[in-house]
Amino acid sequence: MTMTERENLLRVINGQEPGWVPRKGIVPYADLDPEQHKPCCVGVMPELFPPKVNAKGGRIDVFGVEYEPTDSTDGMQLPQPNNFILDDITKWRDVIKAPSLEGIDWRAIAEKSVERVDRKESCVQFGGSSGFFQTLVNFMGFTEGLIALQEEPEECMALIDYICDYQETIARNLIGYIKPDIYSMGDDNATARSPFFSIDMYREIFKPFHVRMAKVATELGLPIDMHDCGRCEDFIEDWREYGVKIWNPAQVMNDLVGIKKKYGNDLILTGCWDSSGPAGWPHSTEDLVRQAVRDCIDTFAPGGGFCFWASVYGAKGDDLAKQRAFWVTDEYNKYGRTFYQKQG
């Protein structure tokens, strides 16, 4: 009997060599897949409250942060510049109010969130925690948020504790009904060149709350997928302490070859794709894009411990980006689906 995409991904998570290289989507054009493979994994992050949208079409989150979509990101949203809700960290108690969770029908929300997922074909990845650093900078902007971390660490921790209470309550109420295969956490706390802050600051201010959110999963024996962009390899040892098994997107400014050698299949690398590299540039050639796919797979897929994920970003209506996405997807199908068979 043929292995499903789900079973294939679980082999990777369990440290085994899979039948083919699993693919965790190609944003934002996964629908261009000519072979229409089922997703190996479906991300689930239930909405507890009806979405709110501002006049520009940007979402407004539960804390009142307003976001703005841009054409250059094909509609992806960032907090509105110069419209932050918190300018003084010491005043956060007056400004930041988590909505009440009383009366929420957790079972109904959880079941609705997975009703369209074919669980024989796809793993369910439950988004248990969005980033605490990201939340802080969404409230304050990067500049003021980073200054607050330096000048008022105790106030920052008090705010993060409050956000963590909110997120942990939601995660613990939903996880038993969703019954995920993977639990995801994330915090984009690095630039392309280095972490935003020192490892000591991470351990003091953020790690205790990441540990708390991780326990929601590890108490149930679930693997944790950590989302962290940029050069964030300094955090790997800490992640592993609290149960991170998968890192996405493992980006090329990290020593990915060294990391794969060091951790083997104990740390699954998702991505290893040069998001800012020539294959993503507007006028990349087909040969260059296809070669980039093969190079990525050749370098990181041997032995397992790897999921293919490639970002192909384009502005709204950018046909060149769609063309690149098709080449990436098609080459993955031709090369990645048969990679382990070719290896013998």
Binding site: I147, S194, P195, F197
Partner: peptide, 14 residues
């Protein structure tokens, strides 16, 4: 040299 990070640089500039 990564002896300090962005928060330290920001408060110095401020």
């Amino acid at each position: 040299k990564e002896e300090i990070f962005i928060p330290e640089m920001l408060v110095a500039a401020r």
